[in-house]
C-alpha cells in the first residue's frame, strides 16, 4: 500500500490531495513530501478523502507536519476525513490539535 500525493492551488492556498493509507511504511516518505509546502505564512489544505486508514505512525506524521506549520505560522487544515479516520483521531485525541475544514472543490464535485 502506498500513499499518492497530488497538489494544486486554489486561490492563495495549496491543496494537497492524498490517496491511500498513511502508515509506518508510507508516512516517512509522506512527511518528506509535505514539509516543502509548509512555508512561513502559507495556507495548506490536506484533503484526506482518498485516505482509507491512518495508523498511529500516520497520525504522528500529520501532527509533526502540523507542528512544523505552527513554528512557521503557516496554517494547515484537514478535510475529507472518512468517518472511521475521524473517529480514530477523536478517540486518540489527535483531532483536538487540527483545524478541520470545508470540503475542497474536488470533493464538492464528487470526485
Amino acid at each position: 500500500m502506498t500513499v499518492k500525493v497530488q497538489t494544486h492551488n486554489e486561490g492563495s492556498r495549496t491543496v494537497i490531495v492524498l490517496d491511500g493509507e498513511i502508515n509506518s511504511t508510507t508516512s516517512g516518505g509522506l512527511q518528506a513530501q509535505l514539509l516543502p509546502f509548509i512555508k512561513a505564512g502559507s495556507e495548506v489544505l490536506v484533503d484526506l478523502t482518498g485516505v482509507s486508514y491512518v495508523s498511529s505512525a500516520g497520525l504522528r506524521t500529520l501532527l509533526i507536519v502540523h507542528r512544523h506549520a505552527q513554528q512557521l505560522e503557516a496554517e494547515i487544515t484537514l478535510s475529507g476525513l472518512s468517518e472511521e479516520v475521524r473517529f480514530v483521531m477523536s478517540a486518540t485525541g489527535f483531532l483536538d490539535f487540527f483545524r478541520i475544514g470545508d470540503a475542497t472543490e474536488g470533493e464538492r464535485a464528487g470526485r
Partner: peptide
C-alpha cells in the same frame, strides 16, 4: 478497552482520556 485497540492505538486513546 480501546475503541482503537484493533489499530494498536490503545495507549494514545487512554492517554487522551487521562488528559481530558
Amino acid at each position: 478497552y480501546a475503541a482503537t485497540g484493533r489499530f494498536g492505538m490503545q495507549a494514545d486513546e487512554f492517554k487522551s482520556l487521562v488528559k481530558e
